[in-house]
Design a protein around this nucleic acid. Structure first.
Lengths: 143, 143
DNA sequence: TGAAACCCGATAAAATCAATCGGGATTGCG
DNA sequence: CGCAATCCCGATTGATTTTATCGGGTTTCA
């Protein structure tokens, strides 16, 4: 199970923008200055904008803003907007793709894993990342 | 975050083998009979064998066995052997790939997520899947 | 000896990812 | 006004990964 660079670049950009919150628009060039491919990052920022995570100012001296406080943005939201939703198997959510329909042992498994991964990623805010909050080991107790 | 078909096919095969435990070797053709591409599945069974999850009997009337009781095989193990380890970012485990070395806010995040996903998948045995155990929602309480 | 089966590296077709290109639209500033 | 800075966006290209298929080799049973 891998993540593409999109999510990594997007997180990088969001961290940058969160740190510059309130300092006016940050240009693409500025955000990409530590070596990220500029035009590629532009695509990702477009996705982040469409997801409502950043706002933009067009024209000269324009750039990108973080749209909300870092505490109100989750890692899950950032990754989903650039990588698409967590999708471990087509058969979850699209019952037509599986001949067996809903009565499938693995289907429940994929749904369960998907759910938990989403919860995990939505449980971490951008602010947590900024503060390098010491992530405690989660308790995995089946209820 | 996607999973390739490898993991899905492998899980399918393992479920099949678990159900046939004690009934003698199951041929590739038999395992693939519900429409999985036979020669592709063969590659995956090779990986499962190298991971110690199945054993094989060569020659005529040969085939594949599950190597251990289903209760002792986890979903994580199956997926890892066919998809490779969970890898959200190169920088976890390979400090050389990141110029900042260990002092990186995102690095800790990736490590944390990787850890939790692994725990999640290792917490489910093949037997749980067979029994279609009603997965309770896990409690995500940071300790 | 021959058929059934696993074993395995090489190759090929398709899909996805990563990045670039080329131009268009918007806006601040002199 | 005119120009430079900047965001916007669809198309294209090259690399990589995924998903197989192929062609053979080896093992074993009858």
């Amino acid at each position: 199970m891998k993540l593409s660079t999109r999510g990594q670049y997007a997180l990088h950009a969001m961290i940058f923008l969160a740190r510059k919150a309130g300092e006016g628009p940050q240009s693409l060039k500025t955000i990409a200055e530590d070596g990220l491919p500029e035009q590629y990052l532009e695509q990702l920022l477009g996705a982040l904008r469409r997801a409502g995570l950043v706002t933009t100012v067009r024209g000269a001296a324009g750039g990108y803003h973080i749209a909300r406080p870092a505490s109100e943005i989750t890692v899950g939201h950032i990754l989903e907007s650039t990588e698409g939703p967590v999708n471990l198997s087509e058969c979850v959510g699209d019952s037509a793709s599986c001949a067996k329909g809903a009565a499938c042992a693995t289907r429940d498994l994929w749904a369960y894993l998907t759910d938990n991964i989403n919860q995990l990623m939505q449980g971490i805010s951008l602010q947590d990342v900024l503060q390098n909050k010491p992530y405690g080991a989660k308790e995995y107790t089946n209820s």
